[in-house]
């Protein structure tokens, strides 16, 4: 492209010379504009997903480049949502990739005044020990009238409505086998 061609591409010249005198249409386009591409165009993959907020279940398309999520759009194929997302669904890129997410285990010892670091594997091991110990200490085999209870009232759990069915299933299965009956979620609120 010669000098003349490049000059012709300048928006200000196009605005002065062309029919788009207000510079709000074609004249505003520059060579740089032409080179711009949406994040969705350079993605390696598009993964089908579902919005994690409310229970309408709008379809999402997750755009991935180099192992990272670069954009989340509504899925036009979905008969539920026809490609639309609300402000929350549209913000799910920030939800999933934003700087507000804490990516490290945090630990606060009893009576502590601040968070401490803790290795994930060690945390899991400590939690398993707490469950076993509390369960044993608070076990109820029978009621006073002799009827069988086979449970602990010393451990409880809250949450599940934001999780997958498969996760709720493992939770309920594990808790029930441990005799933990105080299992609840947002359906109660």
């Amino acid at each position: 492209m010669g000098l003349t061609g490049r000059r012709q591409g300048w928006p200000v010249l196009a605005q002065v010379r062309g029919p788009d005198r207000l510079g709000r249409g074609a004249a505003a386009r520059s060579a740089r504009t032409a080179r711009l591409q949406p994040r969705t165009a350079s993605a390696d993959r598009v993964v089908k997903s579902v919005c994690p907020y409310c229970a309408v279940g709008c379809g999402q398309e997750v755009y991935v480049r180099d192992g990272r999520v670069v954009q989340i759009e509504g899925d036009p194929d979905s008969p539920l949502s026809r490609g639309r997302l609300c402000p929350k669904g549209s913000a799910s890129l920030q939800l999933t990739t934003g700087s507000a997410r804490e990516h490290r285990v945090r630990y606060r010892p009893p009576h502590g005044s601040d968070w401490e670091d803790l290795d994930l594997d060690r945390a899991l091991d400590m939690i398993a020990d707490r469950v076993i110990e509390t369960r044993r200490r608070t076990w109820q085999e029978h009621k006073q009238d002799g009827t069988r209870l086979r449970r602990t009232m010393g451990i409880a759990s809250l949450g599940g409505a934001t999780l997958d069915n498969e996760e709720n299933y493992l939770m309920k299965k594990l808790y029930t086998a441990l005799g933990v009956v105080q299992v609840e979620n947002q359906a109660r609120i």
Binding site: V50, A55, G160, A161, L163, N165, N168, N185, A187
Partner: peptide
């Protein structure tokens, strides 16, 4: 109309007591 992505699911496969 329910308010969480799987609140129906967590009732069907209940994390409920």
């Amino acid at each position: 109309l329910r308010g969480h992505a799987s609140i129906q699911g967590s009732t069907d496969i209940p994390t409920l007591f």
